[in-house]
Design a binder for these strands. Structure first.
Lengths: 243, 243
DNA sequence: GAAAATAAGCTACCGCGGGTAGACAATGGC
DNA sequence: GCCATTGTCTACCCGCGGTAGCTTATTTTC
């Protein structure tokens, strides 16, 4: 029996390919080009395109895709990277025109939502629809990277304000969760073309001011308010059919 | 060669023998029983168990599972239903001891987190890891049903308070998004055994009071605070590796 | 009481997609 | 020009979701 098992080939091949790419014929199989093609294929065919189709869109075959990009996980990771860069760029652009407090938050939220909506299929691909068996892990990995700067910023700000910085981490994930879920819902119903600016304003209101009533004199009203929500929560959860 | 059965028979057949041999009645394979078994299998084998294993755990075979429960989508839907019921029950129990305003929110959040943590695998199964090609749709479907009562409650409360009820829908999804993502993060790192009560308190703080500074005299500090976050956001998004 | 009718279940199979191995072509070195 | 190296393609494997048709056990009817 073949005890000779030259494994590690994939890893080795990948490393070698990237190194020796310019040795043989540089072909159009550049990694960036493959990723471009992958995005095109995903935009065209939805987040569930097969790797074969992605490769075909790039004009190559599956093994080439594998040797240059790697696993499907690796593809998800790479596209995550690009999408995060794009989101970050959009956020930076939205904030370029000077910002303060709440307005800055709103611009950022709007920018992220717009980016998600613009790349909805890529976003879906990166967040698990393309990952198959590891969808939640993909979502979490993406969230980790998206939340990292938020966490750092919040912790820093709280430290400077003399507050306990420990909520920073859950808060960062919470904010990403808001964007994630609302984005999902927003672009889930195609007919619902809610104004992005309006949506951003609403989310900002929640994130900035919370559910609490605005003035402390309204404390009594607050109780009523939450009590209403709670009553419904504890009521029937059997909502309408989604199909 | 005679028709020898190269089997996984031993597992399936034995299980079947114990369960189905006394099927005096064909109704033995009750739907609820199959769903119970599915949950057991998921808890045992993670959210990515195959249908074959689920069926084996139930002591039946795939076609039986199909005929009684239906598609994998249908299975996800059915388990969603059960999990939502459980979450709702936990929330109700947590609120049974009288509640007001912020405290009620905190109890609810804690209850939901606890339920998610307790059924982490089932939660993951229902939220896409088990759905394969339609993971985000599963997540959205679950969120729709989880958010429905929140949305109704918030809209009602806002209407009674004379406020615009239109943010209710995005807010409901936002809250579910917070629970979803933070829950994912929380139980994603097994070693991070952050105190659930503490986590719930932190999330409640965010949801109730928002990111805004507490007193208006701190407005200047607020600017600084968000500016810090923004600076990091617009900085490098290349966080640490997740692997 | 026996045998047909019937209903449930099981084995065996299909299609499809991710991932890989080994043959094949093209390029650079000698 | 020939060989080694390297990148690429064809053909395949495997596992899983989903289904078809035979088998078996229960029920019904004379």
């Amino acid at each position: 029996m073949p005890t000779v098992k030259p494994v590690q080939r994939s890893a080795a091949a990948v490393a070698r390919a990237s190194a020796a790419r310019r040795r043989g014929r540089p072909r159009l199989a550049d990694r960036e080009r493959l990723l471009d093609a992958a995005e095109r294929a995903i935009r065209r065919g939805g987040p569930r395109v097969s790797l074969e189709r992605i490769a075909a869109t790039a004009g190559v075959t599956k093994p080439v895709l594998f040797s240059h990009v790697g696993d499907r996980r690796a593809l998800v990771h790479a596209l995550s990277d690009r999408l995060l860069t794009r989101i970050e760029r959009a956020a930076r652009a939205a904030l370029a025109s000077g910002s303060e407090g709440r307005a800055a938050l709103e611009r950022m939220v709007a920018a992220q939502l717009a980016t998600i909506a613009g790349d909805r299929h890529v976003y879906a691909f990166v967040n698990g629809a393309g990952a198959g068996d590891t969808s939640l892990e993909s979502t979490l990995a993406f969230a980790r990277r998206a939340a990292a700067p938020l966490i750092a910023g919040i912790a820093d700000a709280r430290r400077r304000a003399g507050a306990d910085p420990s909520p920073a981490e859950p808060w960062g994930f919470a904010i990403i969760g808001v964007l994630h879920m609302v984005g999902l819902w927003w672009l889930g119903d195609p007919k619902r073309e809610l104004d992005p600016a309006r949506l951003a304003a609403q989310l900002t209101e929640l994130l900035w001011s919370g559910l609490a009533p605005r003035a402390e004199s309204l404390e009594q009203r607050a109780v009523t308010r939450l009590a209403g929500g709670v009553a419904v929560v504890t009521g029937a959860s059997r909502g309408g059919e989604t199909r």
